[in-house]
């Protein structure tokens, strides 16, 4: 029931083929980049990549405007009173809200990469997946804290936007200054910046790995916090 509510008739039919077809940018960037790593990295940056953006926005829509809306108009009570344990209910909601879009993304991108023969480095895919969970879990926590779709939209725009914009600016600044050691501290805000620098010929894989690890840690932390928040939810 939870799954059907989120993926009603035209949603999957629109999202899945669009994700699959929009991966043509992978081929196009790869060709433009002279078949180098830079093309693949650029085409996998969220916002440039249509399918990643779609997965992000689908997840955010589910979290804020479906779950958040249930919390706001208190129709979540009918879910909470069903004879299902809260842990299971949280698992269902989390799976269909957050995990399904990234599974769709992983399926379409793996299929396209297989069909077209463009190699995507596993660490690059992992960077996106971990960053996705980082953003979605943070927004889920904010939604559970504020219990209002409007407030959580604005707060998540400011929080995520601030993290990405200022983190990026800092990373590019240190990269231009040549202080690559300082990128370790900022790489969690956007590991794609060290990826781009790596593709341009500087070896910053360690920074990427540290960034992904910190992202994963924050994602796990916010996941646990939002689970605790959901378990103690009183409406």
């Amino acid at each position: 029931m939870i799954f059907k509510e989120r993926y009603r008739e035209p949603t999957l039919e629109l999202v899945l083929p669009t994700m699959l077809v929009s991966n043509v940018f992978l081929s196009a960037f790869y060709e433009r980049g002279g078949f180098s790593l830079l093309g693949v990295v650029l085409s996998m940056v969220p916002v440039i990549s249509v399918s990643e953006t779609l997965a992000f926005s689908l997840g955010l829509r589910n979290v804020i405007f479906v779950t958040g809306d249930h919390l706001y108009n208190e129709s979540i009570i009918s879910f909470l009173t069903t004879p299902v344990r809260r842990e299971e209910l949280f698992a269902f909601i989390y799976f269909s809200d957050v995990v399904v879009p990234v599974l769709l993304w992983a399926f379409t991108t793996a299929l396209y990469s297989l069909l077209s023969g463009v190699p995507v480095p596993p660490l690059l895919a992992l960077t996106f997946v971990v960053g996705y969970f980082f953003a979605e879990n943070l927004v889920l926590l904010l939604t559970l804290v504020f219990k209002s779709p409007g407030v959580s939209t604005l707060v998540s725009i400011f929080v995520l936007g601030g993290v990405f914009v200022f983190g990026d600016a800092g990373e590019y600044f240190y990269a231009l200054q040549g202080e690559y050691g300082k990128i370790f501290a900022l790489s969690f805000t956007n590991p794609f910046v060290p990826w781009i620098i790596t593709a341009l010929g500087k070896d910053l894989y360690q920074q990427v790995e540290v960034g992904v690890a910190v992202d994963g840690f924050i994602a796990a932390l916010t996941f646990v916090l939002s689970f605790l928040k959901f378990r103690g939810l009183e409406v």
Binding site: E9, E13, P17, L20, V24, S27
Partner: peptide, 22 residues
């Protein structure tokens, strides 16, 4: 629902096969 999903995926695959970057 399954029918329309298969239809949409089929059109997507068909277009991937037919189109090339020229």
């Amino acid at each position: 629902m399954k029918g329309s999903l298969a239809f949409a995926l089929g059109i997507a695959l068909l277009s991937l096969g037919l189109v090339s970057i020229n």
